[in-house]
Design a protein around this nucleic acid. Sequence first.
DNA 1: TAGTGGTCTAGACCACAAT
DNA 2: TTGTGGTCTAGACCACTAC
Lengths: 246, 246
Amino acid sequence: MGSLPRIGLDRSSPVPLYFQVAEQLERAIVDGALVPGDRIEAEIELAGSLGLSRPTLRQAIQVLVDKGMLVRKRGVGTQVVGAKIRRPFELTSLHDDLARTGQPAGTEVLSCAVVEADDEVGHELQVPPGSPVWSLERLRSVRDEPFALMRNYLPVDVVDLRGADLTALGLYELLRHGGVHLRVANQRIGARRAEAREARLLAERRGAPLVTMTRTAFDDAGRAVEHGDHLYRADRYTVELTLVDR
Amino acid sequence: MGSLPRIGLDRSSPVPLYFQVAEQLERAIVDGALVPGDRIEAEIELAGSLGLSRPTLRQAIQVLVDKGMLVRKRGVGTQVVGAKIRRPFELTSLHDDLARTGQPAGTEVLSCAVVEADDEVGHELQVPPGSPVWSLERLRSVRDEPFALMRNYLPVDVVDLRGADLTALGLYELLRHGGVHLRVANQRIGARRAEAREARLLAERRGAPLVTMTRTAFDDAGRAVEHGDHLYRADRYTVELTLVDR
DNA sequence: TAGTGGTCTAGACCACAAT
DNA sequence: TTGTGGTCTAGACCACTAC
């Protein structure tokens, strides 16, 4: 049974009040000050004690409800949920133990050039076939042990990869720095046997099981920003993710 | 360039007004009456023409923004996003073409009994090891071709599987009918080679690549409701899902 | 400058759960 | 019956975008 630490508000801050409250509530849950099952003070009372209107406080709580961290029940109250939440777009994680313990992943750029989009890539990126798109192929490794062979396509007007240092920055990081805000992604995960070239690059045997993932990501303007087709060594990688149903 | 069909409201309905609006907006997008890039009428005007207050209309739009179907931009307006959206908990899909064209999936229940939870299952379901839990094993097929071998564990106080017809109803459907509302799930997807028993049941060769998926689902009270450990034939199945970042 | 969404207030009435 | 969250209203002012 935890208790909610005092919440401080800064009305001169450009950060919205509801967001200030949501941040501090989230920290209280993440830090363990509030534990699963704990009940939050009633909306009207909490709003009153913070000097906020009820809609504003509700907005704050809604943020955490949307994240799956709080549950509201009419006639009962608002409670802390017991599941661990993982954010979308941080969903990839190495199963490799060494990676878990903080080993950095290395990146080798196999190719990076502008090519003409074929039918499939054009369709996925919502550009006419034949349009110029960046084609990027990377091999990712931990401790010189490769685990992922990744191919990405990006419209040329989304980002300029000339001179970009993809060994230091992830692709999504690079996009974010370029002002692209990812919002929605459609993704397909499956498995198949490794073919000759893939096996060689991934230091596997031919026929070894690989995890396959294709993904198309859209930014906050609804524009298709990236399409990827990736292969992972099944013994070194799993996809972990959290689903939240609203 | 599509246009928004007329929206009808029923103020005597128990369905909230904002939800009525959200439903009709969503249908307009799904049906294609509104296409990606289309702009919605401004909030204040749309609210006025529907006889609603602005906060209520905002709430309706927010539902679709949360689903990733609409994008709001200050100073610009509200636009339809260009991505196809898939709901969480509906993420599984057969890669088999015949299944796509409407072939029903058959289910064979291999076992269904109450057992004592081992350490892992107890941990995942948040019950003490040794607690009674339902253990369920199913083989799913299309046109007598098996594609999934699924094992599930459920706390006995969540649902009673005695006499339940799992050949007609999916497990999640059964839970929903039992008043359980799934809300959050943590999931891990990978791949490995088929072992002897798995290969036999799935009509595969030993060593064939399988998609693996483990998942723990929580209901709207934050209670662990189901833990599953599943295997899929990689040539007949992929996992498709949509990520929405908020 | 005009129009958009973002935030915030101060109430009101209702449905549901616990007692 | 009491207290909870769910919904809804009618405004207000602000920040940002496009022109």
